[in-house]
Design a protein around this nucleic acid. Structure first.
Lengths: 188, 188
DNA sequence: CGACGATATGGAGACAATCTCCACTTGTCA
DNA sequence: TGACAAGTGGAGATTGTCTCCATATCGTCG
């Protein structure tokens, strides 16, 4: 998947500079407002270079996103290995809210991008989704949660949480939703 | 809110033609892909006229959306008057999924617009939100559902459902999420 | 180490979409 | 019916995206 690219030394430096700069814009929420040309200037490269490395805005977003997903996946794995399935899932969902709270700029931007063009964020979000689904499945097999609802429903809820970042008391509502999910998932 | 506008006879005809045309584009999902200028042509008006009536794409979306909301509100009211609070809420949520399923083009487009610019859909969505919150509150007062989670959480979930329309088996997942919500809301 | 091919760079300008402006048309009222 | 307010359409200004290529830099091999 990432073979066939021995990228020249200096080129890589530029590439990284771009991603780093993008990450900052993400964090402060200015990413989508910024003219792409101006962004190039900000990152200290020419427009041509920017387009060479990332042909579209989404491609760039993907690169940043991917880095973040790696961290979340590590967290998921850790929980899975140290807690019973149902608790691991619950903790992970809570952690996701924390994460989305701290990285709200990123969450917001990603949500906007996903909404406009389904496609390209696929790579990273699929990986994340796979992790969530796996936790749900494990918990289901353990008999720790109900069998008649699949993990996709949980993903939808997370999607909603990430997308609704403009709501005035987001945090409380997000926590509430997670509470509902966990309660709803419990076997009766 | 809509006083001070004795809009001239022919002007109103044009305005309605625009909204009607927009509704169709919404339904078939082409709304956001269409160049605004071309849209004007499609609706049989000049660009200037289009802009006069709807200064932004969102303003136009709002107009269409508003019409839809009216129907949903009627449904909400009907349920509220004929069923116990908890059941009314459950039915309404199920109905919302049906609605979003049938009007997926609209749901998708609205989700995309809400994600990019928080603001303007406000009018319609607030009205809808008010209805949902009211149902939740009533149910809470009846002691029919738990007290520690507020209606905003439910709104977030709906938001997720509306936004995730590209998921391969959306319908099943959406139903699942509603099931989780209802189960989660039940008092123990 | 020199020098040559491959690789990468930056930004000028082609292109595309949005939006403004105003000369002209149409409705309305006395 | 005349006259004035209200509304219209579309040419073109404005603003952002993306391509293209002359130039610069890397790295490797004699």
């Amino acid at each position: 998947m990432d073979a066939a690219k021995p990228l020249r030394a200096d080129a890589r430096r530029k590439r990284e500079a771009i991603v780093a700069c993008a990450r900052e814009r993400f964090a402060e929420g200015t990413f989508s407002d910024l003219r792409f040309d101006d962004f190039a200037g900000l990152a200290g490269v020419g427009v041509g270079t920017l387009y060479r490395h990332f042909p579209t805005r989404e491609a760039l977003a993907e690169a940043v996103f991917h880095g973040e997903v790696v961290a979340l996946l590590a967290r998921a794995r850790e929980l899975r290995d140290t807690l019973p399935a149902a608790e691991a899932l619950a903790s992970f969902l809570r952690d996701m809210v924390d994460y989305l709270d701290v990285h709200r700029g990123l969450a917001q931007t990603l949500a906007a991008l996903m909404a406009t063009r389904a496609s390209t964020l696929a790579e990273g979000s699929q990986e994340l989704e796979r992790a969530v689904l796996e936790m749900v499945d494990t918990a289901t097999e353990d008999g720790a949660i109900r069998r008649d609802v699949d993990g996709g429903a949980v993903m939808m809820a997370l999607h909603g949480i990430g997308a609704a970042h403009d709501r005035p008391n987001w945090r409380a509502e997000a926590d509430g939703l997670i509470t509902l999910l966990i309660a709803g998932l419990a076997v009766r």
